[in-house]
Design a protein around this nucleic acid. Structure first.
Lengths: 253, 253
DNA sequence: GCGGCATCTTGATCAGGATCAGTCCGGCGA
DNA sequence: TCGCCGGACTGATCCTGATCAAGATGCCGC
């Protein structure tokens, strides 16, 4: 499944990648960057934080990072590529829970059940930082900043999950989806208005609890209204304000 | 609003109440009971855990426990009564996020934004244990069991939130709602098949993203099918298996 | 180039649940 | 006792988005 451990040799030059960390410093855009900075450089805790990180990948498009039922031992920060998490009900229908960009963290919902409640599948070739969770929570007891970070990550994801549960029209959902993706790309240092959708229309639809035909239609209409430019999976938000207004009902904040 | 601190004097004899804790011991059915037991009796940490708990209430039906925008300083465990949490969008429409029974914890989604993102409203006269969050997370760094508990509580709520986000029929939603309530009552030591719905049909509908008329119709049909007995807000699950099967698509596990 | 396949788009029809409207019921205060 | 009011139930109609169906487009291997 994986080729080898040498990084930076992915045949995907246009794919966003988090800036590289090294033995001294985490990626600046990583979800754990704050925790890392908080301890300052050279402290023994920093070394501890690095000891429990393991770079894994590359995974190829369609590969599983983890599967439903796998024992929970670690959480993963996306270093490169994008991932979707999805659960598969017993009828075999999958339900997309979320998309994760470089710098974001997957696996938090496995803490309680102690096994992964969902699959995580690479949407593009992807790499990860793997944080052993026992080691991480042990470290968290010594480093309040790390504990704080974990609490915040969990709480944040809780907020976004409940927003999606609301009853909103297809237009609202799609608009909010585009705005959310944009602001997340922007937060990680990429363009917030021009980006590629790494997931299929079907995945978007599944995530938004719509039919893929509906997503197509809404996107087409948004384009004809001049709200977005669209070419295949490449999208540009032309009127981000209008989109944000449309989607405000389920946008964070 | 509150009368005094003496417990057990609520004018609501039929309302479920978590068993009483005292200075030495937490309520056995409380979400924090495990953390409490883990430290053993008489240890200094136990005293610390008690120092940061404050019994608050009683609140009367309709009272706010906290409001959207209130600065986040504490989480609350329900001691008696039931609560709903709901966010109010700028059009003034409210969206119910969840119902909380004795022993359950509210306020976890406020950690990240550092202010409450929703209102919490008592559905019956209610009392709470208030846990100062700064004190609690400080304690968590010294007591791995407390930290573990917080992680698990957060992760668990994450799981339930994403289940509700799926696209399911009205029947599935209502069936799952009834089963979930039943098993939660059971887990806290009450009957899992006979209980009173402390919330209105409108609240149920809002929570399930349905119209209240739809909830009425589904409940009526369930009754005519012999799945439940229903009299006002008093409900009995007559065929819990059938209900569970109906709702399995969005039931935890 | 070509065929094969998955993805995307567009159109026509259908259905589940929302909405609107009317009635009933129980609780409460005057 | 009465009238009021909010909550609950039921029926009729409407509308959004799902489903079914048919092309269009793009991608890959050969």
């Amino acid at each position: 499944m994986r080729s080898d451990t040498r990084a930076g040799r992915l045949p995907e030059p246009s794919s966003p990648i988090a800036d590289d960390g090294d033995a001294i410093r985490f990626c600046r855009t990583c979800a754990f960057a704050g925790a890392c900075l908080a301890v300052g450089y050279g402290k023994p805790e920093l070394e501890a934080l690095h000891c429990l990180v393991e770079h894994v990948g590359p995974y190829r498009t369609g590969d599983h990072v983890f599967r439903t039922g796998d024992p929970f031992r670690a959480i993963f920060a996306v270093r490169a590529g994008t991932v979707k998490t999805c659960l598969v009900d017993r009828d075999g229908r999958e339900q997309v829970l979320g998309f994760y960009l470089p710098g974001e963290v997957i696996g938090l919902n496995a803490i309680y059940p102690e096994q992964f409640p969902c699959d995580a599948i690479a949407l593009e070739n992807a790499q990860f930082c793997r944080f052993s969770f026992p080691a991480m929570s042990a470290l968290a007891t010594r480093m309040p900043a790390v504990q704080q970070h974990l609490f915040r990550l969990l709480s944040k994801e809780l907020g976004t999950a409940s927003l999606l549960a609301g009853d909103h029209s297809a237009d609202e959902r799609v608009a909010a989806f585009l705005c959310d993706l944009g602001s997340r790309y922007e937060a990680r240092g990429f363009s917030g208005t021009r980006f590629a959708l790494s997931m299929s229309r079907g995945d978007i639809a599944n995530y938004l609890r719509l039919a893929s035909e509906t997503v197509s239609r809404v996107l087409t209409r948004f384009r004809s209204q001049g709200l977005i430019a669209l070419e295949g999976r490449q999208v540009e938000l032309l009127d981000a304000d209008a989109l944000r207004q449309l989607g405000e009902g389920l946008l964070p904040g």
